[in-house]
Design a protein around this nucleic acid. Structure first.
Lengths: 136, 136
DNA sequence: GTTTATGGTCTCAAAAAGAGACCAGCGCTA
DNA sequence: TAGCGCTGGTCTCTTTTTGAGACCATAAAC
């Protein structure tokens, strides 16, 4: 057992103390989680975990992301050290995005969550339908 | 090994096909992931994984969540079947929120991601600082 | 009778996201 | 040689989401 996570309450209190009194704004876990819990982040990490992709490829792979959000999400992932951006000096310069070691390390647990989602999306959809039916 | 996740590209293409041609809007994994990747969702699930909480307790535990977002996030988590909401007919009615079996099942992989965040937030913060320094 | 606590909802302002135009450079082709 | 598309973006505008805070009803405590 990992003793690090066995008492959440005290963890929360530790974070609370760490952030300088009564506020979770600087909770380190939240800081990290928010970076990867964006609307598009997990999807892009998922794609890049398979192989490096170019900008246009990603845009075509995820058709309903706006170019602006693709740019920005990749920028944020790069800033947090998950993604490496490499520009090739071809005639129209091409840009390749790939996962860093940190990114791959983060993908390991993320993948388990994705796997859970894959196995349980039916249960979630049923719960949602039941809830909506009960509300009506 | 779980053969379900070994070739992401084909997975992506399967999702693409499932969603009726060239769009990830209905990708089931995305559907589930988005439900738990909200700004406050993981934090609240984290808290409720420890024990049931009342509305006001959660508000005090997470001081920088607005009451509106607490209400709405709990509503969404309840709708997706992760959280159970029970109203007690006390004089000012009190409401208790707790994790369902589905919620606890989902927390297992989420916890691993949280654990990763806990162990690696320094690396992320360093990457961020290095990136910002390089930009300047 | 004023305050306190319960768990919300409602309104309005601020922030984030999406849609789409625009840009520069080069190759292709008509 | 004039147009066209491909590259990876940025800029602006509109819509959606989020946050801040007032308001609400009830009942007990003070």
């Amino acid at each position: 057992m990992d003793s690090k996570i066995f008492n959440l309450k005290s963890k929360l209190e530790v974070y609370k103390a760490m952030s300088g009194g009564g506020n979770f704004g600087d909770c380190p876990v939240r800081d990290v989680i928010q970076g990867i819990s964006g609307k598009w982040s997990s999807l892009l990490v998922m794609a890049l975990a398979e192989r490096p992709y170019r900008f246009g490829e990603l845009r075509r792979l995820v058709p309903d992301i706006s170019q602006r959000m693709l740019t920005q999400t990749l920028y944020d992932l790069q800033r947090d050290g998950y993604v490496h951006r490499e520009v090739f000096p071809t005639k129209p310069p091409s840009v390749e995005y790939s996962l860093t070691d940190l990114g791959r390390s983060m993908f390991a647990p993320l993948q388990l969550l994705i796997q859970w989602a894959e196995l349980n999306h039916d249960a979630v959809r049923e719960a949602r339908a039941a809830f909506d039916a009960a509300q009506a």
